[in-house]
Design a protein around this nucleic acid. Structure first.
Lengths: 170, 170
DNA sequence: TACGATACGGAACGCACGCCCCGGTTGGCA
DNA sequence: TGCCAACCGGGGCGTGCGTTCCGTATCGTA
């Protein structure tokens, strides 16, 4: 790869990191190109599609989160810790709220991880048993998006965690 | 007003009711016109903008919900009942999930109603005091949207209600 | 240094949407 | 029944987006 190509690739990744974090996946690609100081065509030389660029920006962080989900002897705490970590990331960077929503293999892995943690927590009795993975994913998706609309992220997280632990109503 | 104009107005309203309920505010206006059997121009003869049409479709139901929020001697139950009603509406018709999100006076009234119910419930000690109106609105917005993504509406509602009642963590 | 491969940038394309305009049609009153 | 105002339909405009194309500039090598 040519030197200027590598340099531009880094400039694009850097700009994409900033703008996806600030505005989420919906930021126009031309704006990313603009901040990187290149044309839109250059972005497409390095990444075949906007989603591929998004994935390149979020992949390492999401993978790190997934890897940190190793089971311990307290499955309830594992789930809580994971959700707390997700909420923390999402509160700071808008792209995490989209990583759980924008279709990709990464997203599917994230969903699968959530499902595993949920199952173990339910088996241990730490979470009400009538919640499905879909429920949890939908709940998190809603919560993460709500964090960028003026709500208090910490309060939102506490509400969700408390709700998960509650026992079923009659 | 001419007879055919009134007839077309009703056809448009009817089609809009169906499609906003099925697909939410994002349904293309041309599709509404198509189902109504008229051209887009006809829609704009009767409603100055897409939002006006949306408001015409949702106004009566939202107003009814707001009116039903009369305070009783149990503010906690009032809030619970209202959120349950909203969730029920949103689970059945997608436009209710947008009525709380699409900017309009109606939306603001809805937010104000939620704020009033929240305050009273907090004063009565039925809801944790560190929640703001913005928090509640964001939470509901997320929950209502999640209902159309495969999650179980009843479970989601129970989680949120339980979370609101929980006491603050140290 | 000269040349070919590589990469650049931005104009342009295709699409979808909200919204407007206008020639043709239709309804209801005199 | 004839006429005019009201109304209709759909083609078209403007916008914003993701994506592609291609003439030009640049890099690295012989």
């Amino acid at each position: 790869m040519r030197a200027d190509a590598a340099r531009n690739r880094e400039k694009v990744l850097s700009a994409a990191r900033e703008l996806f974090a600030e505005q989420g996946f919906d930021v126009p690609l031309d704006e990313i190109a603009g901040r990187a100081g290149v044309g839109p065509g250059t972005v497409y030389r390095h990444f075949p599609t906007k989603q591929a660029l998004f994935q390149a920006v979020t992949e390492s962080r999401v993978q790190a989160m997934i890897s940190s989900a190793a089971p311990s002897e307290d499955p309830g705490a594992d789930l809580t810790a994971f959700l707390t970590k997700m909420a923390g990331e999402a509160a700071a960077k808008r792209d995490m709220s989209d990583a759980i929503a924008v279709p990709s293999e990464l997203r599917d892995s994230l969903h699968a991880t959530l499902g595993g943690l949920l199952e173990r927590a339910q088996a241990a009795g730490a979470v009400r048993p009538d919640i499905t993975t879909q429920d949890l994913v939908a709940l998190m998706k809603g919560m993460l998006q709500s964090m960028h609309e003026g709500a208090n992220p910490a309060v939102l997280l506490e509400i969700v965690l408390a709700g998960l632990q509650s026992s079923r109503k009659p």
